[in-house]
């Protein structure tokens, strides 16, 4: 199996069979290369260039005239909302991504146990991946009626809300600092967390299933409690999946259709026809997300444990 031996082929000249294989390799990925160059690279750099330009769309073509950082100045200093939306969206993203990771990890732990109707429960947890994609999630967040109805039902349940009671107790106890407020917000919006964690649950589950049960048995015999084996076995064994899931969650969250920054960009672009500033805004957002993903992935990857 020479394919996986990277070190062997890395520094060698591609001759004979290897050369032929390299050629067919390129043939296989040719569609991607063409598509990437045509529909990614060009628009990518053009949009970067456009963010430094004043774009005027005429009848036959569009004219770009270089105007330095005016668009960026517009995004940060002229536009009344952009700064606020950017900060809000990014804090929301950080908090929710953390919540999604924790939630999906614990749900995966539960779903990995053996109980009746497990397949059904898994199917239900995966349902949001299908039903809350694309256009629906944007509409959902605007749907006042559904929110009212949920409230009505809550009230109909004789107004008993465990979470409210708990929150009140914690608040009056004086422990409610800002961190607690964030936790409360997440608990109140647990639905948003639950519908965004379908894929992550499946990824964690697939990781959990690869841990050999003999490890747990050995730990059990040695007198390890379930809590200890969670931290000493489960956690390290699937730690690389935290990286994958974090990556996926942040990216997924930053591109959702109910994202305020994205809505703003589209508004500026399609309604106001300000292509230049729209590109600048998109680029600022993209760079921040990229930096965030890069730094956090680096931090997480330090903690990842590789078994083999």
């Amino acid at each position: 199996m020479g394919y996986s031996m990277k070190s062997q082929t890395k520094r060698k000249k591609y001759v004979g069979l290897q050369r032929r294989k390299a050629k067919s390799g390129y043939l296989f990925i040719l569609p991607f290369i063409i598509g990437f160059l045509a529909f990614m690279v060009k628009p990518f750099f053009q949009s970067l260039y456009m963010s430094f330009c004043n774009v005027e769309v005429g009848s036959g073509s569009f004219v770009l005239s270089f105007n330095k950082l005016t668009n960026y100045y517009f995004a940060f200093r002229v536009d009344p909302e952009y700064n606020r939306l950017l900060v809000e969206e990014i804090t929301r993203m950080i908090i929710y991504s953390l919540a999604i990771i924790v939630f999906s990890f614990f749900v995966a732990l539960i779903l990995n146990q053996k109980f009746h109707a497990r397949a059904l429960v898994r199917a239900i947890f995966f349902l949001p991946v299908i039903l809350s994609s694309g256009v629906i999630i944007g509409l959902e967040s605007d749907n006042q009626l559904m929110a009212n109805m949920a409230n009505l039902m809550e009230e109909a349940a004789s107004g008993v809300s465990v979470t409210d009671a708990l929150e009140n107790i914690l608040r009056t106890a004086g422990v409610a600092t800002r961190a607690f407020e964030e936790v409360f917000e997440i608990i109140d919006n647990i639905y948003d967390v639950a519908i965004a964690s379908g894929i992550q649950i499946i990824i964690f589950l697939s990781g959990l299933q690869t841990i050999p049960s003999s490890m747990y048995e050995a730990a059990d015999i040695e007198g390890c409690t379930a809590w200890e084996s969670l931290w000493k076995i489960t956690f390290p064994m699937i730690s690389n999946l935290f990286l994958v899931n974090w990556f996926y969650t942040v990216i997924d969250f930053s591109m959702r259709t109910d994202n305020e920054v994205i809505k703003k960009i589209q508004e500026v672009m399609i309604i106001n026809l300000n292509y230049g500033p729209a590109s600048a805004m998109a680029w600022i957002y993209f760079l921040i997300i990229l930096a965030f993903v890069g730094i956090t992935s680096l931090i997480i990857s330090r903690g990842v444990y590789y078994y083999d």
């Binding site: 053009q46 949009s47 930053s254 591109m255 997300i289």
Partner: peptide
């Protein structure tokens, strides 16, 4: 990684 919105304008 690249959000489609970033390149939407120029696409």
């Amino acid at each position: 990684l690249v959000p489609p919105q970033t390149i939407a304008t120029s696409l």
